[in-house]
Amino acid sequence: MSDDHGHDHPKHELSYYAKRIYAMRDLLIEKGVISEKDIQCQIEYQEARTPANGARLVAKAWVDPAFKARFIADPKAACQEIGIDATAINEFVVLENTPQVRHMVVCTLCSCYPRPILGRPPDWYKSFNYRQRSVSDPRGVMREFGLELPDEVEVRVHDSTADIRYIVMPMRPAGTEGWSEDDLAKLVTRDSMIGVMDALPSLPE
């Protein structure tokens, strides 16, 4: 990340609203509503949040049953335990997948997402297509992400409309006994923590 996000200047080819945010930035700073430093801090805060945080939590829960119990009972405390700052979340809920139950998370009304843990949501999560289809055709959405589920599995779609932020804990893939937490974390993709797919079955190439 270049360090000039705060101070760069708008370019001719920017769209109408892109130009306006630069104008609003300058005015807000001139008026002392926010500072240049506020903006830099927020950029740095957000850059530091990535799906790797969630992957660490899930991988630790896979290898440590006591941690898993704490992660489910009090996710914010579990985050603190391994140095992940979850204070910006009002309430944080972990949804545990099992062979019988798969969870999937959406925000149909806007784009609520556990940003303090996983960072900014992906484009597809914010798309109209996902917001429309996830609740009425969750199995179709999962199929597009490569997950085909038999009828007897229960699909639970969570529409996060309020202050609760959800993260899915995918199942630990078979054949990973004895793996290190670091290697296990590589199997825990962002999309598996939104719930549209399972964890990867093997390490990515």
Binding site: I21, W124, S127
Partner: peptide, 22 residues
């Protein structure tokens, strides 16, 4: 669902940060 993500432009990162700062 189009799974591809676009890299955020500077103005998008700025808009995100100003929103959070406010």
């Amino acid at each position: 669902i189009e799974a591809a993500d676009h890299p955020l432009s500077d103005w998008e990162i700025l808009a995100d940060a100003i929103n959070q700062a406010l």
